[in-house]
Design a protein around this nucleic acid. Sequence first.
DNA 1: CTCAGCTAGATTTTT
DNA 2: TCTAGCTGAG
Length: 732
Amino acid sequence: MNDILNQLNPPQREAVTATEGPVLVLAGAGSGKTRVLTYRIAYMLEEKNIAPWNILAITFTNKAANEMADRVEALVGAAANDMWVRTFHSACVRILRRDIERLGYGRNFNIIDADDQKSLVKECVRELRLSEDEFPHRSVLAEISRAKDGLYTPEEYCREFATEYRLSQVGRIYTLYQNKLRRSNDVDFDDLIMLTVRLFRECPDVLEYYRNKFKYILVDEYQDTNPAQNELIILLAGEHRNICVVGDDDQSIYKFRGADISNILEFEKAFPNAKVVRLEQNYRSTQNILDAANSVIKNNTGRKGKHLWTDGEKGENIQVYRANNDFDEADYIVKQIRSLAADGYRYGDIAVLFRAKSSSKVIEDCFMRAALPYRVLSGLRFYDRKEIRDMIAYLRLIKNPDDDVSLRRIINVPSRKIGKVTLDAINSMAAREGVSLYRAISGHLEDFKGGVAEFYTLIENLRSLVGTVPIDELVQRVYEDSGYEKSLEKDEKGQERAENIGELISGASHYTETVDEPNFDDYMDNLVLVSDVDNYDEDTDAVVMMTMHASKGLEFPVVFICGFDDGVFPSVKAIFDPEEIQEERRICYVAITRARQRLYLTGSHSRMVFGKTSVYKPSRFLNEIPEELYELTDAREEMHARAEQLRETMGAMMQKKEKKMPTATVTMSAEKPKPTGNVNLKAGDTVSHPKFGEGVIISAQPVGNDVHYKINFNGVGEKNLLGLYAKLTKIN
DNA sequence: CTCAGCTAGATTTTT
DNA sequence: TCTAGCTGAG
């Protein structure tokens, strides 16, 4: 054990050995946070003889939880198995599975995911006869989610916002949404936390049980907790106060998901006399990179305050490049990577970070053309794929026939010729009798034949298999018997989809083989809560591209941060709000501190956004970095030198777009094919359209370089058409 | 019921 | 400009 302590620097050692009482560890980027957490647990077990089952370690991601569990096990061996090392959500599931009946839910509740939430909200909006334009599911869902993060029940929410029209309507949606969830015994991600808090508040004996059980609590990434999660921790640790939270207020970048930075800033209010430990020595980056990060983040207010430093070298200067346009920017990145490769870097050592996914496209194209190996991280997650979600919907319906959301999803997938009309009929039947859709069907079997009857038999048959066949076989049977397998034959993406389902099935057999007591309910929890950990495989030698958010917690020898322009990063959406700018600045801090040796910041004087070319100034964050830390290259000054290459790039792009021309001459026709449409028509003109026949223009509204026509066609009625695209001919 | 064609919208997303 | 999701014609 002394060995272990000797491997730590003084503040790290302090954080590890302060096992009693509240501790706040402010862990700067790259300061050995994970090491502190794992050593602390090892220290508690070995030196303090604390029983492993008295320890609760909470993380946000499964990846972090698994990593922590593995590392602790490596230090102390099997004792690690008796601890709870879990994500907030999976810890809550486990607690709720035991006692949720106290809140009137059934113990076999299903956990619905974002996609189901979306359709449920839509359904609610429609049922309440509200406009889907005014209450788009996206923002309503965010609103509901924030409400739950803030521990507002529907009733409290409605009361709170009764006087404000929009929010009071959202309150109605929230109420209906919650009722629907409850009726089908479903909970969403946010419910997992909120219901656990409710359970603790309403059932003191339950809270007492867990307070006794978890005498020592650790929370990782504390800056990312939302109010509900914070309350959960306060409830659990409030009595014994053996709570250690680790985080970095400067790395709080998930406000939009409900994370509340004040949880970490005000930790000492919740736990007076907390010991505060700062980990500021950095073991990752060069001093230049740290200086840049420090100088940016110091512009934020209300920080706990930290100053990163290293024993290591000053390192290379940061390279700043201002391109002429976004193609040129991508081109620069490719060229630099080539020369880095020549310097001995592996592609896998290099990461390209961007603020928004949309920025990746230009760069990807450029990499593709240059034949540089790359991967984009965090595209579609495995369990977000349509075919996987369809399979899961079947499984969920089998598990819980009252799960209307899942039923709607797959009753006609693959097609059983069950359309809106039939579904509406079932729906009103169910509403009339106050039962779920599936029960409505089973109660009126005589009324249904064909598709619906077929579907019912299918589900009943599959249901009878639960518990009698292994889970992987069950999944296989769903896949075959539902006709899904067959339907993929006609699907152009069928091959890939079949492979994904194959992976789901092998995942299921892996589960059956590795888990002590495999059971269907538990398998389903894992399916929803455990996304495919991380498809980031460090062994493949390819440049990684990802959002700055996704890069949190990772590190790379070389980092490119692209789109370093005001309006791109910081995002336009943040530019007028000082709070948002502070959040962007934290994102910037996170991004910069990913780099170990070399950092590139690239921007562009102009870029294509939404089809229009706009002009950009350098990111304001660049002004916050002292000039002596970087070398600036401005393409504008080298314009002439580069003009030739640029032309080639553009030429190659044009060629790629119009595959027809084999070789020909690469001309400089950057002009796109002229839109054939007619934009010179006026109100009153008579026109002819291939489909709608003749009509008279009622109005012509210019929209950009296009014109928006409202036309009254004879016998057809009013149509809205765009001049550039509609095939309109003027008739005199 | 299905599919083509149009429209509106277009940060970030650990669970 | 690109694309996901909705609408309306077959």
